[in-house]
Design a protein around this nucleic acid. Structure first.
Length: 892
RNA sequence: GCGUUCUUAGCUCAGUUGGUUAGAGCGCUACGUUGACAUCGUAGAGGUCGGCAGUUCGAAUCUGCCAGAACGCACCA
């Protein structure tokens, strides 16, 4: 033994070492050159976030794609960065200030932003550091942030540009109001959940009569804002009410009864209370029938002055109270259980209140047209393609995008207002003054819009702005060889289907609007990481393991493998630590295979891995062929984004083929001997190939072994080595077939031992009656395979080999294997075994005969298929004949 | 309500244009420590491919209906 290597692989020792080495040598950094670019932009995580299992999966996949591309000779560039995540971050800052006893309301905008930046600098980048532990080969020199000054400028430029093109407008509409975050949200940020609520039937007195009408509502508190009651004009029950008025309970407001066929006569009582300020449909009714709007809610969800009653109380407290008060007033007819869907804020989980409000909007219909077309025609490919349907559905029904947020943390809207309320959109106050002046409007004492932009309004520019944030201004004059042109469009985007609309769709829209080109060639949608109960892993549920702890326990390679192994594209990943364990075990297996080879090295001998093989050695020829076969398969899997299939092929090649068969066959026959130098060199050569194929998936252990195999210069590191190319000349189908037969024979012998309970150590006499001389010659010239893997005393092979009197047997490929086992064979058991096999084959034969005697089959099926059936029939009959003969041997 | 996608071994999933004796990993059972690895080896058990009907010479694969699940979209109080 020339080197001391520990018997167990210790990832923690190895992983940090190689990550540092890679960083020191700047391998991850990319500059434009003659090579084709392979660009990936990271889906920027929240700057104040921490790594969770979803990030682990997502970034592992990106790293696999990028590492392979780098080995393939592309100029690989993976741009990392973070997102300012307006709502989430502002909420965190507000919470932290509250803990310090500071209220947001007590601070000036600038003071608040100072706190936010402080928090960003403190926490920003933690998540990126965590990605390094995972092995992410990002170009860290290019780390970006959506609130960097230059990036921010591009966001503002785009806002101004779209405004000037008439694609952005300001308007009063019903919006989704988050009373917790106190901001408007886009439709995408509202999650509708089915909830158990109540349907309140409330009586409204008819003016001038003693009679009542009963309306049904799930939100009784909104009656404070009622300005009408609506019935269907065709409703016979209410004909007598036409033209009358009713009195809103408690507030005693007289409101008209209006007629509109919008009202469904079947639902509830057929009477609808109308609250134009707090329901989109009611708002439409209000517009149509010229109704007053009463804004009865404050921004925090409490009742406003306009509500008259319950002022300052939270809407849900009012709901309870008003139920009591209505009941006491005798106006509550009944309350029934009811299931309906309620909108919740995606970020704060607060119940959304529809609210009439003046906001900024992006007009989506026209903008999104190219984005729809180019996904449908596969210019941008979705993997898996099934997501095209969802995408199309959304895009075809796309609604205008509310982009203003009543927050401070984010990109402030570049709109400026004068004292009269006139406004212009301009980059600076000076420009705004100029613009107003030209229009002949007041231009002094301008105030900038208080609101910021939706975070996604900045991240939709990510694939562009990370390379050149000045593209708007310089769009026309941009140098032809700019970084943006070199890296754009990017190759693969890896993200979750959850943000298909939030982000993916909008990036494609921005790409066509500003680059006149797609932002990426492919979108790979990952699944959701779930726990054993099928729940999404989340911090709030506390069901997610800490990724960093997991890495400590199983190694980054182990976790990468574990996750990839279980996640076909677009399918959810039911996470189980067992997967990581499997990954760790695989590392150990690889490690020990390598360790075994080093144990065979002799002092003072130079070993040089080689791709040369011994042509006379079936195991060499077979291993070489298996590697070629795997390269072809893996490349195809990558082309189809089936990374888990690719990994499984590599896993099986290493564990099953290389470890279980090749190494076993490389072991010298005799005791205490080392593997000969030539054989070891070939084995090491194979090992190098294996490490190349493994590297994208498990970068650390592969690099570690690669560097152990030989001294390497910086240029020779595995991550910058060449991805293996398929070489058909190294793959002989006949070798694969022959070796497969030998493998089956070995397994048969082992099976016989197990059945008759003969120890693996006991030497057997083996007789093989082959179907022909050619097979016999092939087996005999490769008898070493059988002799090494089985304890064999004597081996007799040939078409005329006579079977012994008492034996156990097996049939492989039409060749009969006999093991004489005088005194060991249980006749009864053997008969049963043979009979069972005969029964099975007879059933099989029956099926084949059924087909072949069917004229329809013989006439219609392709010739090759018929031939195949005929061959099966012949083989099966042959085997059956042999088995029947054997059965006779055991009958007496 | 509309739409999309699923349903294959105890669990998690493969199965390419209809033609295999339906595969893998984990788990399970039995056996096994004289030269890598018990984070291991060898062998084995386990499935009427959700149900029913149809197309076809032939269906896990295509069609229809039914049952169940997931996701997306939608203003029904």
């Amino acid at each position: 033994m020339s080197k001391e290597i520990p018997a167990q692989y210790d990832a923690s020792q190895v992983e940090d070492k190689w990550y540092e080495y890679w960083m020191e040598n700047n391998y991850f950094h990319s500059e434009p050159d003659d090579r084709e670019s392979f660009t990936v932009v990271i889906p920027p995580p929240n700057v104040t976030g921490v790594l969770h299992m979803g990030h682990m999966l997502n970034n592992t996949i990106q790293d696999v794609l990028v590492r392979r591309a780098r080995m393939q000779g592309y100029n690989a560039c993976w741009v990392p960065g973070t997102d300012h995540a307006s709502i989430a971050t502002e909420a965190k800052v507000v919470k932290r200030l509250r803990e310090k006893g500071i209220k947001k309301g007590d601070l000036e905008r600038d003071e608040f932003l100072e706190h936010a930046w402080e928090w960003t600098h403190e926490h920003g980048g933690i998540i990126l550091e965590q990605l390094k532990k995972l092995g992410a080969s990002c170009d860290w020199d290019r780390t970006n942030f959506t609130m960097n000054p230059e990036y921010s400028e591009s966001v503002i430029d785009v806002f101004i540009d779209l405004y000037e093109k008439g694609k952005i407008y300001r308007g009063a509409r019903m919006i989704n109001w988050d009373p917790e975050a106190k901001t408007a949200l886009s439709d995408e940020e509202v999650i509708h959940k089915e909830v158990n609520s109540k349907l309140y039937h409330i009586k409204y007195k008819i003016v001038g009569e003693d009679d009542f009408v009963t309306i049904a509502t799930t939100r009784p508190e909104t009656l404070l804002g009622d300005t009408a009651v609506c019935i269907n004009p065709d409703d016979e029950r209410y004909k007598h009410l036409h033209g009358k008025k009713v009195i809103v309970p408690l507030v005693d407001r007289e409101v008209p009864i209006i007629l509109d066929d919008y009202v469904d006569m079947e639902f509830g009582t057929g009477c609808l209370k109308v609250t134009p300020a707090h329901d989109e449909n009611d708002y439409n009714l209000g517009q149509k029938h010229n109704l007053e709007t009463i804004n009865m809610l404050n921004e925090d969800g409490t009742v406003s002055e306009e509500g008259e009653l319950y002022i300052g109380m939270d809407r849900f407290a009012v709901r309870k109270q008003i139920e009591k008060d209505l009941d006491e007033a005798g106006l509550l007819y009944k309350v029934e259980d009811y299931q309906n869907k309620v909108g919740y804020s995606e970020r704060t989980d607060a119940v959304i209140e529809p609210r009439l409000s003046l906001q900024w909007w992006v007009s989506m219909k026209e903008l999104s047209q190219p984005a729809l077309e180019n996904v449908m025609n596969d210019t941008v490919e979705f993997h898996p393609a099934k997501f095209k349907n969802t995408y199309r559905h959304w895009m075809e029904n796309v609604r205008d995008w509310c982009i203003s947020r009543q927050l401070w943390w984010g990109h402030r809207i570049p709109a400026w207002y004068n004292e009269d309320g006139d406004f212009v959109v301009a980059k600076t106050k000076a420009e705004a003054e100029e613009k107003l002046k030209i229009k002949g409007l007041k231009f002094k004492n301008l105030k900038q819009d208080e609101d910021v932009l939706d975070t996604w309004f900045s991240s939709w520019l990510w694939p562009i702005s990370v390379f050149d944030p000045k593209y708007i201004g310089e769009y026309q004059e941009r140098e032809p060889n700019s970084e943006l042109d070199y890296y754009y469009p990017t190759k693969d985007l890896v993200t979750a289907p959850e943000i298909m609309f939030f982000w993916v769709a909008r990036m494609i829209i921005a790409g066509y609007e500003y680059m006149d080109n797609k932002p990426f060639d492919n979108v790979y949608y990952t699944g959701i990481v779930r726990d054993k109960k099928g729940r999404k892993m989340s911090k709030s549920l506390g069901n997610s393991p800490d990724p960093i702890e997991l890495i400590g326990k199983y190694g980054a390679d182990g976790i990468r493998m574990g996750m990839l192994f279980a996640t076909p594209a677009g399918n959810d990943l039911p996470f189980d630590e067992k997967l990581c364990e499997q990954g760790r075990n695989f590392c150990n297996k690889i490690w020990n295979a390598f360790r075994f080879l080093t144990m065979n090295m002799e002092d003072g001998v130079d070993y040089e891995p080689t791709t040369a093989i011994n042509k006379d050695d079936i195991s060499d020829r077979w291993m070489a062929a298996r590697i070629q076969e795997t390269i072809a398969g893996v490349n195809e899997d990558f082309d189809n984004y089936k990374l888990n299939d690719a990994l499984k092929k590599v896993y099986s090649l290493i564990w099953d083929d290389f470890c279980d068969w090749y190494i076993e066959l490389a072991k010298p026959m005799e005791y205490g001997q080392n593997i000969p130098k030539e054989k070891l060199n070939t084995a090491l050569g194979f090992f190098e190939q294996l490490m190349k194929l493994l590297h994208p998936f498990m970068p650390f252990i592969s690099e570690e072994i690669w560097q152990h195999i030989q001294e390497r210069t910086e240029e020779e590191a595995l991550l910058v080595s060449e991805w293996p190319e398929m070489d058909g000349s190294k793959m002989d189908e006949a070798d694969l077939k022959l070796f497969d037969t030998l493998q089956q024979m070995v397994s048969s012998l082992r099976n016989i031992r197990a059945e008759v309970q003969v120890s693996p150590k006991e030497e057997l006499d083996v007789l093989i009656q082959t179907k022909d001389q050619k097979t016999a010659d092939a087996i005999l010239s490769n008898r070493i395979v059988l002799e090494k893997l089985e304890s064999i005393k004597s081996l007799e092979v040939g078409p005329d080999v006579e079977k012994p009197s008492v034996y156990s047997s097996s049939i492989v490929d039409g060749n009969e294997i006999y093991v004489p086992l005088e005194g060991l064979v249980d006749f009864e058991k053997e008969r049963e075994r043979i009979q069972k096999e005969i029964d099975r084959l007879e059933g099989f034969l029956k099926g084949i005969n059924g087909k072949l005697s069917n004229e329809g089959f013989v006439n219609n099926a392709p010739e090759t298929v018929v031939e195949k059936e005929k061959k099966k029939k012949a083989d099966t009959e042959e085997s059956l004949a042999k088995l029947r003969e054997q059965l006779k041997d055991f009958e007496d």
